[in-house]
Structure formats: structure tokens, C-alpha cells
Design a binder for these strands. Structure first.
Lengths: 225, 225
DNA sequence: TAGATTGTTAATCGATTAACAATC
DNA sequence: TAGATTGTTAATCGATTAACAATC
């Protein structure tokens, strides 16, 4: 399969791409100019074959017998991930979580500017959080198209998430980060990444229960790990 | 493989368990008392075989020819996930993200109480966020053991994450939700769930780049999807 | 050229889905 | 009993890892 055609790339590959990028940035800051996949893997706890295979989806970036040129590969990864440009992002939900995301420096540092916020609550509309004025969702289609915004974040309660998502999509958004504990149902061309922090905590409590050997049911009990 | 022995359960199965639980809670609120795996799958967009297989790791909860008793299965899932008890959680990092998590209602609603916060910054120690006093990390081992806290959340900058993690582990924590953009290196018995919101946004910008057909490199260009 | 490391194919592993015997 | 649905095994699918020919 050539990278010239638009093969669909595994999600996991894309996620790893940004891990690789982080590694390369660290290497570059140390002045490393060339490195082999084996060295990268060893140093950062990755698999060298996987690294090469992930890159192969997108082209040939290395030199046989030599390795990869750090700044060059870094540039390629940034271009592939779309990180050479700044992305305007719309946020729906100006509650605790939403406000935090607005104040959070981590996003804009990485080129994602939350430049538009919406909230259904009439009391909030017109107020500002972190210098961004909260708008009425009714104006979403107009405002988002005007700004050319294609990425949205949902930080509403679960009950409002589906409606928020549909409104985003109707406003031209085709990539959504959903932080609400709700499964969204949207057309397939829309990419939805669902992050449910409470659900992640539940996997941790599961781990604790198992580790502490607490689960018992009638005569069936798990042994302590 | 019997569920009586302590088989290791796939992470994905555990994650789905909390999805199933959410579905069951919805069904119960509607007064549905019995349901088949096929109906659950159909209604919530899941796979019935996978649902049955996931449950099979933990026991037999259904009745052949009939289906599952909603309140009963719900109870089993809660017990398996450790959601019948309240979990005390320690947070490291009282910046924007950390403060938001403290204020966020979603966690305590689901039985996770962030009852302890630490921050390295001397200016912050002694102040309170959402009614919780920020403590000096030096006191972590004493305080966490006293409270029996085993779950930690890291919301520090990347540069402080590894140290925070080690301190948590040294204080008896064996489950960590890492929100810092840094790969943690910890003993294998410690469960680490890494959630990097900025990295998730990067997969979305990747999706946008592909969808908009922007990526070009020399003569090699991806076709518009 | 000899040594090294890529890009890529083949083998392995694990997870998902399908099929069906057990059984309510 | 006949029909339905589970629990579980077998088949499929996809992702990871290993191996190696291409080639710098």
C-alpha cells in the first residue's frame, strides 16, 4: 500500500505520531541531529519496528544505514499532524470544566486557540471567561462559519451533549473532542474523540478492587493478585 | 478459563464495563426490568457477543432464554468496578487544570472525592480551592497513608510529573490518572492511565488536514478523501 | 566494500465477531 | 415441549512484533 493513496490510518498510529514528535523535540533540544529507530525506541520505551511501520504510512523519512535526521523528521511529523498552523477551536459549555479549558495554557501553547465559547445558560451569555465572551448557541452556525472553525470541544453536562454536537456539525465542525459522559451519534464523516475522565477513574477503582482482593461473590472470590 | 482465578482482564473490557453500566442505569430509569444482550447492543450501538464475552470474565449474570435482570446486572457491575464505595483521591498540581478538577462536580457525583491537593508552589500552600486546603508535597507520605488514599491524579506541568508520580507511589498510591503531557516511568504494579488532552486535539487536527486534503510533499500528495 | 539501518513483508499475538451447544 | 438467549468455543480481523532484503 503506497502512501500516495488515501489509506485509512489507524487511530493508534496517529496517537503515537505525537508521542514520536515529543521525543524528537526532546532530542533536538539536546542537539541530537541523527538517530536510529532502535535508539529512539530504547530511550523512550517504544518499539522500533512499530515506529518505522507507523512512519511508513506517510512516506520514507529515513536514510538506510544511517537513521533519521531529527529536525527533518520533526518537521514532517508536524506537517502530517497539521501542527504548522494554528487551529481555532470552539468550546460548548462554560461550566467548571469548560472554564478550566479556557484558562489552561497547554492548548494554546500547542497551537489550539479556543477563540469561541457557547453556553445555553442566559445568565452566562455576554460574560467573559479568560478574555473570551460567551455567546448564545443560536449564533453558532453564523459565527463558526465566519471564523472557519472546524474543531469543537464539548464540555456540557451529558444531557446537553448530543444537541451541542449536532449544532457544531451543523455549523461546519467535523472534528469533536467530547468531554461529556455521553455517547454521541453523528454522521460518519465527523471524527469524535470521547474522553470521559470519570470513566477513566472507574478503571482505576477497578484496579484497586482487584489489587486489594476485595471482590467477593458468594463462594466465588478472586484471589489476591 | 474460569473467573475464579485472577485472570488479567483487558483494559478495553473494563472501559466497556462502565459503558454497560451507564446503559443499564438508563434502562432502569425507564423501568425496564429484563433485557437481552441483543436488545442492549441494538439500542446503544454495541456488539452483543462482546457484551456477553466481557461479562463472562467475571461470572454468569444472565438467564438463558430470558436475558439479564437489569437491576441485578447493574449491581454486579458496580461491585466489579468498585463503585459501591466512595474513593478518596489525591490531586497533585493546583494550577488551572487541577483547580477545575476540584470544582468539577462530575467526579464526586460518581463517588470519587478529591479530598487532598498538593502543590510545590510555596505561595499556594495553605490556600484553599473548592474548600480543600493545598498542602506541601513533603507531607504527602504521611497524609496519604493516614487517609488510606490509593488513587492519585497528576495535573502538574510535564516537567514536574515524574517527581509527582514517584511521590504518590512512595505514599502508597497504586493507581494514577496522569493528565500531564509526560510519559511516566513507574513500577509495573502501579496502574497509570495517561490522558493527554492536547494530544487528542492533535489527532483531530490530523483528521482535519486529511479531510481538507492539505498535506502535500513534493510530488506526493494525498488525494482528498 | 563491510557495517548499519531502513522500509516492508511475514509471523505472532490479541481482540472482535460469529456460531452454536447448553439450557432456561 | 418449542423458542429464545446465554455462555463459550471457533473464525476472523487487525495490530504488534520479528525478520530480512534493499540500500545507504
Amino acid at each position: 500500500m503506497s502512501h500516495q493513496t488515501s489509506a485509512k490510518i489507524p487511530d493508534k498510529t496517529v496517537t503515537r505520531l505525537s508521542i514520536y514528535l515529543r521525543c524528537l523535540e526532546e532530542l533536538e533540544s539536546e542537539g541530537v541531529s541523527t538517530i536510529s529507530s532502535r535508539e529512539v525506541a530504547q530511550r523512550f520505551g517504544l518499539n522500533s519496528a512499530q515506529l518505522r511501520k507507523d512512519l511508513a504510512y506517510f512516506g520514507q523519512f529515513g536514510v538506510r544505514g544511517v537513521g533519521y535526521h531529527v529536525p527533518s523528521l520533526e518537521g514532517h511529523l508536524k506537517e502530517i499532524l497539521g501542527l504548522n498552523q494554528e487551529w481555532k477551536v470552539a468550546l460548548v459549555g462554560a461550566g467548571n470544566l469548560g472554564s478550566a479549558l479556557l484558562k489552561y495554557k497547554g492548548f494554546s501553547q500547542k497551537g489550539f486557540k479556543i477563540c469561541m465559547v457557547f453556553d445555553n445558560h442566559p445568565m452566562k451569555v455576554g460574560k467573559s471567561v479568560a478574555g473570551v465572551e460567551i455567546k448564545d448557541p443560536k449564533k453558532m452556525p453564523y459565527l463558526l462559519r465566519r471564523e472557519g472553525i472546524r474543531i469543537g470541544i464539548i464540555a456540557t453536562p451529558a444531557s446537553a451533549a448530543q444537541e451541542a454536537a449536532e449544532k457544531l456539525v451543523a455549523s461546519g465542525v467535523s472534528s469533536i473532542l467530547n468531554l461529556a459522559p455521553a455517547q454521541l451519534s453523528l454522521p460518519p464523516e465527523v471524527k469524535v474523540q470521547h474522553v470521559d475522565l470519570a470513566a477513566v477513574l472507574k478503571t482505576l477503582s477497578f484496579h484497586q478492587v482487584r489489587q486489594e482482593g476485595k471482590y467477593q461473590e458468594g463462594s466465588r472470590a478472586w484471589k489476591q493478585v
